[in-house]
Structures are given as structure tokens and as C-alpha cells.
Simulated assay, not measured.
Amino acid sequence: MAHAILAFFSVLALAPIAIIVMNAFKSRDAIFGAPLEPPTTGTFDLIGFRTVFANGNFDAYFMNSFSVTLVALGGTILFGSMAAFALSEYKFKLNSLTALFFTMGIMVPIRLGTPGILELMVASGLVNTRTALVLVYIAQGLPMAIFILAEYMRTVSDDLKNAGRVDGLSEYVIFFWLVLPLLRPAMVSVAVFTMIPMWNDLWFPLILAPGEDTKTLTLGAQAFIGQDVTDWNSVLAALTLSILPVLALYLVFSKGLIRGITSGAIK
């Protein structure tokens, strides 16, 4: 019974992706005529991919998404692990309150603060820059990162850290050389959970970086959606290409993701 339920939800989650990928390789008539059928020799067509690469400025959009996501992901893991180390290692009066404050960031959508964020970016001169997106995405990912890493950080042996202090190591050395390498499973979990919202986001690129030089892949795909006519071949091709990095990340780190989740659950 459990396997049947898991199989049902797996099909439910994968079906939309399969439909997008199948229709990306079909002609326009086949997309509307038989959207649930795989491409055949009669319906196979790469016009969408040719249009994306020829007229969609795909390379620039992809590099914008890739650079923003990579830098934001690195900042989220670095600052999140440092905050988690402080919350789990040092006991101070506002420790619990600070942890609760970060946890609230998971429950409150960052989009509610869009007017204030936009005003801050305008005042800082960061509108239409990738820096604006990086800063917002780091702020968006920190609550989840701190929550996961803090719980995993508490499982690190105190004897290891105290041995380093006895040997005269500074707190920075203990953190970067002793503790951080042990957090790799948890960091993989954080990377997967926080990368997907960053990569797929349309809201903040549309508001903070709508310029042609700073458009992300998700925002660039909107160019094929018109008020009267939509180039569905190009839209589906762009979506298919945007799925590849996320899929590659999961395939590479799937074992580490499962290990990080189960380690936190068991410990």
C-alpha cells in the first residue's frame, strides 16, 4: 500500500515535467492535437529549440541565472552555517529568541516585503543588477539553511571542538577546518532545497532586474508569451532547458541529500 501511494505521488509530480519535455520536441499542431502523446517521426520538430538559441538570447539568460544562483547558494550556505554554529555552540540570553526569529523566516514569505526591498534597492542603486538578486536570494534561503544546519550542528562531537580549543585553535579555524567538513550531507540538503526556488523564481527578476542584460532564464522565457499569440514551441523548449541544471544537481547529489535528511532524522 505504501509503495502504491508513493508511486502515485511520483507519477503526479513527474507527469507535468514529462508533458513539457515531450511537447518541446513536437510541432505546434501536435502540441494542441495530441499533447499527451510522445513525439513520433511525423510530429518530431526542433523548431522551438532553434528559435530559443537563434532569437531568445538564451546563452546570456542562462549565464545570468547560473551566476546569480551559484553566488547566492554559496552565500546562503556560508552565512547559514556560520549562524548555525553560533546558535548551537554559544549560549546567550537571546539564543532561543534569535533562533525563533530565523525560523519565522520560513513561515513568512519574503515576497510580502517586496515594496520595502524595492525601495532599498533603488536607494542603494542596485536595481537592474545581479547583485540585487543575489542579496534577496541569500536572505530568502538563510532561514531554511540555518534551521537545517543548526539541527545537524548539534550532533557534532563537543570533544572534537574542545580538543581544538585545547590545542590553541581559534574559533574560525575550528569552524572552517573541523566542523564545516562534517556538515557536507546537511549542506547538500540545503543546496537542493534552496537552489530550486532561486533558479525558478520569476517574481524578483521581474521587479529588480528586468533589463535585457540582467534577465534570468525564467524571465527571458516570457518573451515568447504574447498577449494574442504565444510561441508554445519556444516556451516549452526554454522550460525544458531550464529543467536540466536542477535535474543534474539532483542526480549528482541525490545520495548526499538522502543521507543528510536521514542523518538529521535519526540523530
Rank of each mutant, 00 (worst) to 15 (best):
A4W: 14
F9W: 15
S10L: 15
L12K: 06
P16Y: 12
A18T: 15
A18C: 15
I19G: 03
I19H: 12
V21I: 15
A24I: 14
S27H: 15
R28Q: 15
D29I: 13
A30M: 14
F32A: 14
F32R: 14
A34S: 15
P35R: 13
P35A: 13
E37H: 10
T40C: 07
G42T: 11
F44V: 06
G48S: 10
F53Q: 06
N55T: 12
G56R: 10
D59N: 02
D59M: 12
T69Y: 10
L70T: 10
G74H: 06
T76H: 00
T76Q: 06
F79D: 00
F85S: 00
K91V: 11
F92H: 11
L94Q: 08
N95M: 09
N95G: 04
S96L: 08
G105W: 05
M107E: 01
G113W: 07
G116A: 15
E119G: 09
L126Q: 13
N128M: 08
T131V: 15
L133G: 08
L133N: 06
V134T: 10
Y137G: 00
I148Y: 03
L149W: 03
N162S: 11
V166R: 10
S170K: 13
Y172W: 15
Y172V: 06
V173P: 00
W177M: 02
L180F: 06
P185Q: 03
M187G: 01
S189N: 00
A191G: 02
M195Q: 01
M198Q: 04
L202E: 01
I207L: 14
G211Q: 07
K215Y: 01
L217E: 03
A223K: 12
G226M: 04
Q227I: 06
D231I: 08
W232T: 03
W232M: 11
N233K: 07
N233R: 14
L236T: 07
L239M: 14
L239S: 12
L239D: 03
T240Y: 07
S242L: 01
S242G: 04
A248W: 03
L249G: 09
G260D: 08
